[in-house]
């Protein structure tokens, strides 16, 4: 058993644990925005860890480059996707968690009613 294999195993397990935490978060959090908060970064970190594990486990330049390119791509796109869903949710007027402390963002014009299941 080599150090490289051990490092890959640790990274893989860290990534899987983070992914599990994201799933737990999406189930437990009270509203869309907190759920997005929980999933968008946890899933970014999970994908980063697992792709790094791949890059380390396969001792190959091509695989390592592709895995690192995938990590860069995830870093570029994950916040965009989260931002798009968050904006859409706010524009639709999805209700905020009642325990929300402050809301300094104006509600969308036209007073859209929240539609739980269109």
């Amino acid at each position: 058993m080599s150090v490289r294999e051990l490092l890959a195993a640790v990274l893989m397990l860290a990534g899987v644990a983070t992914a599990f935490l994201a799933a737990l978060g999406v189930l437990r959090m009270p509203d869309v925005f907190t759920r997005l908060s929980a999933t968008s970064k946890a899933s970014t970190l999970a994908k980063m860890c697992i792709f790094l594990a791949l890059a380390i486990a396969f001792d190959d330049l091509g695989v390592a480059t592709r895995a690192l390119a995938a990590v860069a791509f995830v870093f570029l796109t994950a916040p965009l996707a989260a931002h798009a869903i968050g904006r859409a949710a706010f524009a639709l007027g999805v209700p905020l968690f009642p325990g929300t402390k402050v809301n300094e963002m104006p509600r969308p014009q036209g007073n859209v009613q929240a539609d739980p299941d269109p």
Binding site: G25, M29, T34, K41, L96, M105
Partner: peptide, 22 residues
């Protein structure tokens, strides 16, 4: 700060104090 989010996922929901800040 990933640890902070992990903690807030595992704690009861009532202890959250989220908000939207400008």
């Amino acid at each position: 700060s990933n640890a902070a989010v992990a903690r807030s996922i595992l704690r009861p929901v009532s202890s959250l104090s989220p908000g939207i800040v400008a």
